[in-house]
Design a protein around this nucleic acid. Structure first.
Lengths: 149, 149
DNA sequence: ACCAAATATATCGTACACGATATAAACGTG
DNA sequence: CACGTTTATATCGTGTACGATATATTTGGT
């Protein structure tokens, strides 16, 4: 019927894709000064909220699985940022805990996050609204059976 | 002043990150049936709008550079989806053109895009508004001198 | 016409993401 | 208390992204 000549600039998925890439390009050099990557930064933020999460709990929060998290956490452990310990109660579980070195980065990371927020040019209110809309979109596509088979 | 105990769920960058990951997880199995990855899909959409773009033009549109595009386009060429030709006028430039095989995917890709849009659960109006807000955020962080030195 | 600077791709190394699969520990039902 | 099932993490291969760097072509000033 309609030819729907959709260009890349019309797609909401491309908006997310290119905005996420741009955000990474903004974060990368700042985090590199601290020896961190973006997902490693997320792990720190998550553990500063509550330390001692398991790999599975981190994955549930960040939307990642062990195939991504295990090597990432091993790199963080090698860098002296976290410890990886098998739980006593259940030997399958690995508990991730922050080191003093990681806790020492807290202030610098807070500055960096403020700097990034300022770069968005958004008011706190607008940022919250946009954030929640993006989360809602994520949840919509995550919890949907595509029924494509 | 304030300790701002920001968790991952408070960050707009994490909203973008996790929504983009979720979008990829939605697209991936659908595109895999057509032998495509997500950025390869973007290349097709871009070239369906106007065929015969150079690597640099594709990069400007998609926000990527030759370090990402060159291997990606080589894989697409190996898969028989595009041709890569040095321009006569300027031998530095590589022109990317669609093959018949790529054009044959147009209808299936259109179905797929419609399916993804439906999964967002958004009205056309809301999707456009959100898309433009996300693009605006991207442009804000892209065109800002972080002045972090 | 020469040659330094600019431009367009390409190459390389690192670190994600992810589907598929493997391994090992804990659990449950008989 | 055996043993199949479930659960938690790990491993592997592929394909991005990206900074840094390399290569090749073109351009511009003299």
């Amino acid at each position: 019927m309609d030819d729907t000549p959709l260009g890349t600039q019309d797609l909401i998925c491309f908006a997310l894709y290119s905005a996420n890439n741009a955000m990474n390009r903004l974060y990368r050099p700042l985090l590199a000064q601290l020896g961190l990557t973006y997902p490693q930064y997320l792990v720190l933020v998550s553990l500063w909220d509550r330390d001692g999460k398991t790999v599975g709990q981190l994955g549930a929060e960040l939307g990642l699985e062990s195939n991504t998290l295990t090597p990432l956490l091993k790199r963080m452990a090698e860098a002296g940022l976290v410890t990886r310990t098998r739980a006593d109660a259940d030997e399958r579980v690995v508990v991730i805990a922050l080191t003093d070195k990681a806790n020492g980065l807290k202030a610098e990371v807070a500055d960096l996050a403020a700097c990034v927020f300022e770069a968005t040019g958004l008011t706190l209110k607008d940022a919250r609204r946009l954030r929640d809309q993006v989360f809602a979109l994520r949840d919509a596509i995550e919890h949907r059976d595509t029924r494509a088979d």
